[in-house]
């Protein structure tokens, strides 16, 4: 392998959702953890099923299986903790996966115009062609305008801290 070819290789984490495998750029992955208790409370963001506590942080759990394989996962082996980029900051999200994850080095083919927005590119690996996921397009984030205002928040109240990374 030439130096040029090595330079074009990137690291990806392969994840399994049901029978299919997908990839996420390794630089966007924080860790792989065992499933823990999901805390649920009322909200209207369908893709988010609740939050988990991880290293003192509150991390939303985002099940992307329904979007990618058109059914919910029946069994969860791990949560892949990934960084989700927003305009001004990054936040952790937990993605349930149904099997082991694998770190690989491969060359990514850029997406074509006909690919869905959540496709960041394509990998050829072990005889499979694998979608590289664009988490920013796949998982929910701000878009709608929300009312500002905290007139009734009491003086001296704690200000929420952004969950930055």
């Amino acid at each position: 392998m030439t130096l040029l070819a090595e330079a074009e290789l990137q690291s990806f984490v392969l994840l399994r959702l049901g029978d299919r495998r997908f990839a996420v750029a390794a630089k966007e992955i924080a860790e792989l953890v065992a499933p823990s208790r999901v805390f649920r409370f009322p909200h209207h963001t369908q893709e988010i099923e609740g939050v988990i506590l991880r290293r003192g942080r509150i991390v939303p759990v985002c099940d992307v299986a329904e979007k990618l394989i058109e059914r919910k996962l029946t069994s969860r082996r791990f949560y892949l903790i990934a960084q989700r980029r927003y305009a001004a900051q990054n936040e952790w999200i937990a993605i349930p996966v149904s099997g082991e994850c694998e770190l690989i080095h491969a060359e990514m083919t850029p997406p074509s115009e006909s690919d869905a927005p959540h496709v960041a590119g394509w990998l050829a690996h072990a005889g499979d062609v694998i979608e590289v996921l664009n988490l920013a397009a796949l998982t929910p984030g701000p878009g709608a305008q929300h009312r500002a205002g905290s007139a009734a928040t009491p003086p001296g109240a704690l200000q929420p801290q952004e969950a930055r990374r």
Binding site: P42, H43, T45, I93, P140, H146, P160, A163
Partner: peptide, 18 residues
């Protein structure tokens, strides 16, 4: 400590919770 509602929550709940 009060953690901001994660940005993944992007509907009415942003008006409901501090």
């Amino acid at each position: 400590r009060l953690q901001a509602l994660p940005l993944s929550f992007c509907h009415e709940e942003r008006d409901w919770y501090r």
